[in-house]
C-alpha cells in the first residue's frame, strides 16, 4: 500500500497544482536515481514522489483520491517510470562510451564534428520536398511464426491494422519496413515507412541456433536401448522418427530440413534432437533384471574423469 501522496510530497491537501509540481520537482532533483548512484533509498523516494505526482497532477484522479474512491496507488496503476535506466548502463563496462577521461573515448563536441557533414546533409535535405517520417513500431512474433514465416497483424495506435508478412528466419532486433505506412510527406513528398522492430518470443520446447532448431527429446529406457519409431514434435507438425538402437543421453539426431523454413536461395535449417533417457516410475521387474544382469563388456563411464580431479 503506497503512502499518502500529500505526505510523500510534503504538501497540504489543498495545495495548488503549481505547489504540487514545485514540491515534486524539488524531490526529483534531490532523489533522481541517475543523479544519486549508489543510494537505493534515493531511488525509493524518487519512485514514491513520481507515483504521488502522477496521482495528484491529474485533477480527475486527485479528486477521486480526495473523495476516497481510489487508494494512494491509484485504481489504474500508472506505467512504471523507467528512471534509473541510465545508471545501469553508465556503471556497466559499456558506460565507457561516455567516459570523458578515456583516451580514445568521449569528449564533448568531439564526435559532433565527426558527424557534422552527415548532419548538415540531413538537414539540407529537409528543406526540399521531403518524405514523411518513418514511424517505428514493435511487433512481438510467436516463435513458430519466425521459424515457418507467417502474416501477423499489427494494431496501430489509431486503430488501423497492418498485415505484416514475416519471412521465415527473422530474429529479435531485426526490423521490417512497410513502404508508405509511416507519417504523411511534407512539401509533396511521399509518405514515410513503417519500421517494425521484431521481438521473437521464446518457445517452451524449441531453441534457435541460427537456422537450426534444438529440441530435448525424452526417451524411455526401452527406446534408448532398442531404438525404434517415436513421434517427435516439429514446427510444421509431429514427425515420425526412427531412433537408432543403443542411444545414450546426449546423443544427437539430425533431421535435415526440419528447422527454420527455406527462404529464397537459403536452404532450410535442421532440427537437432538431443536424446534424454528417462527411467520413469520404479519398476520391480526392471530392478530384478538389472540386479541379476552381468554386462558382457563391463566399463567405467567415469574413466575419463580420473585425469581431471
Amino acid at each position: 500500500m503506497a503512502e499518502d501522496p500529500y505526505k510523500v510530497l510534503g504538501v497540504a491537501r489543498d495545495a495548488t497544482p503549481e505547489a504540487i509540481k514545485k514540491a515534486y520537482r524539488k524531490l526529483a532533483r534531490q532523489n533522481h536515481p541517475d543523479l544519486n548512484p549508489g543510494k537505493p533509498e534515493a531511488e525509493a523516494r524518487f519512485k514514491a514522489a513520481s507515483a504521488a505526482h502522477d496521482l495528484l497532477s491529474d485533477p480527475e484522479r486527485r479528486a477521486r483520491f480526495d473523495r476516497g474512491e481510489i487508494d494512494a496507488e491509484g485504481q489504474e496503476r500508472p506505467p512504471p517510470r523507467p528512471a534509473g535506466g541510465w545508471r545501469r548502463h553508465a556503471e556497466a563496462p559499456e558506460g565507457g562510451r561516455y567516459d570523458p577521461f578515456a583516451e580514445s573515448g568521449f569528449e564533448a563536441g568531439d564526435f559532433g564534428d565527426l558527424f557534422a557533414d552527415i548532419l548538415a546533409r540531413q538537414r539540407a535535405a529537409e528543406t526540399a520536398p521531403r518524405p514523411g517520417r518513418d514511424v517505428a513500431y514493435r511487433l512481438s512474433v510467436p516463435f513458430l511464426s519466425a521459424v515457418l514465416g507467417a502474416t501477423e497483424q499489427l494494431v496501430l495506435p489509431d486503430g488501423r491494422q497492418l498485415s505484416v508478412k514475416i519471412p521465415p528466419g527473422v530474429v529479435s532486433g531485426q526490423s521490417l519496413r512497410l513502404r508508405g505506412q509511416g507519417a504523411p510527406g511534407r512539401n509533396g513528398g511521399p509518405a514515410g515507412n513503417a519500421v517494425i522492430e521484431l521481438e521473437v518470443e521464446d518457445h517452451p520446447l524449441f531453441r534457435r541456433d541460427g537456422f537450426d532448431l534444438h529440441l530435448d527429446l525424452p526417451v524411455t529406457l526401452k527406446e534408448a536401448v532398442l531404438g525404434g519409431p517415436v513421434t517427435v514434435p516439429a514446427p510444421a507438425g509431429p514427425l515420425r522418427v526412427t531412433l537408432p538402437a543403443g542411444s545414450d543421453t546426449g546423443r544427437q539426431v539430425r533431421l535435415r530440413g526440419k528447422g527454420v523454413a527455406a527462404e529464397g536461395s537459403r536452404p532450410a535449417g535442421d532440427l537437432l534432437l538431443t536424446l534424454r533417457v528417462v527411467l520413469g516410475p520404479p519398476d520391480p521387474a526392471l530392478e530384478a533384471f538389472v540386479r541379476d544382469w552381468t554386462p558382457q563388456k563391463p566399463f567405467d563411464p567415469r574413466e575419463a574423469m580420473d585425469d581431471t580431479p
Partner: peptide, 16 residues
C-alpha cells in the same frame, strides 16, 4: 558533463 565524470570515476573505483 558532471554526471559523465562521476560515473567514469565510479567505474574506476570499481564500486557499484
Amino acid at each position: 558533463s558532471l554526471l559523465d565524470q562521476i560515473y567514469a570515476l565510479r567505474r574506476r573505483l570499481g564500486e557499484s
